[in-house]
Measured scan of single mutants.
Amino acid sequence: KELVLALYDYQEKSPREVTMKKGDILTLLNSTNKDWWKVEVNGRQGFVPAAYVKKL
């Protein structure tokens, strides 16, 4: 599985998104969309802005 690092805090704005804190390590589930990547964090799956994370 591929991991990404949260570069910034992000507060979810819809049920399809997830909240993350700067420094969190997230599991990358899908990065086919250039703007929104699907990740898993704390057992929850959802989208975060691709610009807010970096592949490890």
Rank of each mutant, 00 (worst) to 15 (best):
K1Y: 14
K1F: 15
K1A: 13
E2W: 15
E2L: 13
E2N: 12
E2T: 13
E2K: 10
E2Q: 13
E2I: 14
E2Y: 13
L3S: 08
L3Y: 15
L3W: 14
L3H: 11
L3M: 12
V4G: 13
V4W: 09
V4P: 00
V4I: 08
V4R: 03
L5M: 14
L5C: 09
L5N: 02
L5F: 10
A6W: 02
A6R: 01
A6S: 06
A6P: 01
A6K: 01
A6C: 11
L7Y: 04
L7F: 04
L7W: 04
L7N: 03
L7A: 04
L7R: 05
Y8I: 11
Y8H: 12
Y8K: 13
Y8E: 10
D9H: 06
D9E: 06
D9V: 02
D9A: 08
D9I: 02
D9R: 03
D9N: 10
Y10N: 01
Y10C: 02
Y10L: 02
Q11P: 08
Q11V: 14
Q11M: 14
Q11A: 13
Q11F: 14
Q11R: 12
Q11H: 14
E12D: 05
E12N: 08
E12Q: 14
E12V: 06
E12Y: 05
E12I: 07
E12P: 14
E12T: 08
E12C: 12
E12W: 06
E12G: 15
E12S: 15
K13C: 11
K13L: 11
K13Q: 15
K13E: 08
S14P: 06
S14M: 08
S14W: 07
S14K: 08
S14H: 13
S14D: 12
P15F: 10
P15M: 10
P15L: 10
P15S: 14
P15G: 10
R16K: 12
R16D: 12
R16H: 13
R16V: 12
R16N: 15
R16L: 14
R16S: 12
E17V: 05
E17T: 09
E17I: 04
E17L: 06
E17C: 08
V18P: 01
V18N: 04
V18L: 15
V18R: 02
V18H: 03
V18Y: 04
V18D: 00
V18A: 05
V18T: 06
V18W: 06
V18K: 02
T19D: 04
T19Q: 05
T19Y: 04
T19I: 03
T19K: 04
T19R: 06
M20E: 00
M20R: 00
M20N: 00
M20I: 14
K21R: 13
K21L: 09
K21P: 01
K21Y: 13
K21T: 09
K21I: 09
K21Q: 10
K21G: 05
K22Q: 10
K22P: 03
K22M: 09
K22D: 03
K22G: 05
K22L: 06
K22A: 14
G23Y: 04
G23S: 03
G23A: 03
G23H: 05
G23P: 00
G23R: 02
G23M: 03
G23V: 01
G23I: 00
D24Q: 15
D24E: 12
D24Y: 05
D24N: 07
D24W: 14
I25Y: 06
I25K: 05
I25E: 04
I25R: 06
I25D: 01
I25L: 11
L26K: 00
L26H: 03
L26D: 00
L26T: 01
L26E: 00
L26S: 02
L26G: 11
T27G: 07
T27H: 11
T27S: 09
T27W: 14
T27Y: 13
L28I: 05
L29E: 03
L29G: 01
L29I: 14
L29Q: 04
L29V: 12
L29F: 04
L29D: 02
N30Q: 11
N30D: 15
N30G: 07
N30E: 15
N30P: 03
N30F: 08
S31I: 07
S31K: 08
S31D: 15
S31V: 07
S31E: 13
S31R: 08
S31P: 06
T32N: 13
T32I: 10
T32S: 15
T32M: 11
T32Q: 12
T32R: 12
T32P: 04
T32F: 10
T32V: 11
N33V: 05
N33M: 09
N33E: 12
N33D: 15
N33Y: 09
N33P: 05
N33G: 10
K34L: 10
K34R: 12
K34H: 12
K34E: 12
K34F: 10
K34W: 08
D35P: 03
D35S: 14
D35G: 10
D35Q: 13
D35M: 15
D35W: 15
D35V: 15
D35F: 15
D35T: 15
W36I: 03
W36N: 02
W36M: 07
W36K: 02
W36H: 03
W36T: 02
W36F: 07
W36P: 00
W36L: 04
W36E: 04
W36S: 03
W37V: 08
W37C: 04
W37D: 01
W37H: 03
W37N: 02
W37I: 05
W37S: 03
K38T: 10
K38A: 09
K38P: 02
K38H: 13
K38Y: 15
V39N: 00
V39E: 00
V39W: 00
V39I: 08
V39M: 02
E40L: 09
E40P: 00
E40M: 09
E40D: 09
E40S: 09
E40N: 05
E40T: 06
V41Y: 12
V41F: 15
V41L: 15
V41R: 15
V41N: 14
V41H: 15
V41S: 14
V41Q: 12
V41C: 10
N42Q: 11
N42G: 14
N42A: 13
N42E: 11
N42R: 12
N42C: 10
N42M: 11
N42W: 09
G43A: 07
G43W: 05
G43F: 06
R44F: 07
R44I: 08
R44M: 08
R44L: 08
R44Y: 06
R44G: 04
Q45E: 13
Q45G: 07
Q45K: 11
Q45N: 08
Q45W: 08
G46F: 07
G46Y: 04
G46H: 02
G46S: 02
G46T: 02
F47P: 00
F47G: 01
F47K: 03
F47H: 06
F47N: 04
F47M: 09
F47T: 03
F47R: 04
F47W: 15
F47C: 10
V48W: 00
V48E: 00
V48A: 04
V48F: 00
V48D: 00
V48P: 00
V48H: 00
V48Y: 00
P49Y: 03
P49K: 04
P49M: 03
P49G: 01
P49T: 01
P49N: 02
P49H: 02
P49D: 02
A50Y: 02
A50T: 05
A51W: 09
A51G: 10
A51L: 12
A51Q: 13
A51C: 14
A51I: 11
A51M: 12
A51F: 09
A51R: 14
A51N: 13
A51V: 10
A51P: 08
A51D: 10
Y52D: 03
Y52T: 07
Y52L: 12
Y52A: 09
Y52V: 07
Y52E: 02
Y52R: 06
Y52Q: 05
V53C: 13
V53H: 00
V53Y: 01
V53S: 01
V53P: 00
V53A: 03
K54D: 07
K54F: 12
K54P: 01
K54R: 15
K54S: 11
K55P: 11
K55E: 07
K55Y: 11
K55Q: 09
K55H: 10
L56N: 04
L56D: 03
